[in-house]
Design a protein around this nucleic acid. Structure first.
Lengths: 208, 208
DNA sequence: CCACCATTTTGCACATCCTGCAATTTTGCA
DNA sequence: TGCAAAATTGCAGGATGTGCAAAATGGTGG
């Protein structure tokens, strides 16, 4: 368990364990039977907690499949910090790209689990929505950060939202392609390639 | 009712009317009370149909807010056709942009309703997910069309998915910005501007 | 080891969501 | 009018999700 820091009370460790157990069990069961044939009761029973406890950790069944770690809520702010910490000579797109790359690294670290998770998501499209919703929660901090770097007000100017949406889309495409390649090509490479194509204005590859 | 063609049986017209009534009532009520304080029963009662009938039209409450027209399912294929029909000298990005613009026109036609709908969606972020999911249903036909234009297999090559995701994100950003401007600037202009920025590689505006 | 407080888990009640099925009503057409 | 297709409806029932209060458990100090 690379996530459980040593200086942690038993209580907190148990909480994290329960979270991870619920999340991975959800992925496992949904992978075996399909989303509709798995109930919250099934997942809870497999982990050994009451269904009520499940809802103390996740707002809905889908979240258990989609949310990998208990600290997911902070990911947005972490990415925003990464963005602001990038060398000032980089353009906003370049800085954002570097933030994406470190995000990719974290996914790569839990390669197996993520490949599994993406498989389940691809097989159950309704989960995509949930995933987007989660990502959307980090939107505010990201837009603020982009606004700071570019000196533009995200409320007033089209550019920050434009950049963010485009980059999210590109990252998403890279991850899905990574999955289609069974994770054999490093996600970082794919993300870099995708970002490079974006920076080049998505030129028609046939016109080369 | 601009959508009800004259050569249509009473049956079909009533179906469309019911659909539109449910959709617009859903938007209205959710706008007034918030998503959580509106039940399917409320919406059905206001329209004058049974709750069971509601579910004959929509898979879930959210869909009634998000899906504007009964033929939404065909939009993906229509867009794909538009894409293939675009002049062959255009790049894939340019062709896709022109498809987006005609999509923008359709939204512009029902300006009021859409502004209302977007307001509700912005106020209830969980709806965004649903919206994305709907858009995702058109993904396959779009990817196929992009693959045809570029001569690339969407399964094998990163580019088609990349282009599609980026363009969707950009369109999304343009629509939201349109909403923030109260629809005062033509959506078409915003979409064109956004697509132009994308084609230019999203250069940092500060570096001008 | 015990006692005490904070946190977590749990059971229970309850509203809502959503589906399948069979009965009923409505529409289209001859 | 009368028949066939299609739409609406009620009902039964499983599943989701929330609030609340009781019970179990971890942390801490005596």
């Amino acid at each position: 368990m690379p996530l459980t820091a040593p200086a942690m009370s038993l209580r907190e460790r148990k909480k994290i364990d329960t979270f991870r157990a619920l999340a991975s069990t959800a992925v496992k069961l949904v992978n075996e039977r399909g989303l509709d044939n798995v109930t919250v009761e099934d997942i809870s029973a497999e982990v050994g907690v009451s269904p009520r406890t499940f809802f103390n950790y996740f707002a809905c069944k889908e979240d258990a499949v989609v949310i990998a770690y208990p600290d997911y809520a902070q990911h947005g702010e972490q990415a925003a910090e990464t963005l602001l910490a990038a060398p000032p000579e980089l353009s906003a797109l370049e800085a954002l790209t570097s933030a994406l790359v470190s995000h990719a690294d974290r996914i790569q670290e839990d390669r197996e689990e993520w490949l599994h998770r993406i498989a389940v998501i691809e097989a159950n499209p309704s989960l995509v929505s949930r995933l987007i919703a989660i990502g959307g929660e980090s939107e505010l901090s990201m837009l603020t950060a982009i606004g700071r770097r570019t000196g533009l007000d995200p409320e007033e100017d089209l550019y920050p939202g434009l950049l963010f949406s485009a980059v999210c889309g590109v990252f998403n495409a890279a991850v899905r392609h990574w999955y289609r390649l069974d994770g054999k090509q490093p996600l970082e490479e794919l993300v870099r390639a995708a970002a490079a194509a974006l920076a080049a204005g998505l030129p028609d590859p046939g016109k080369n």
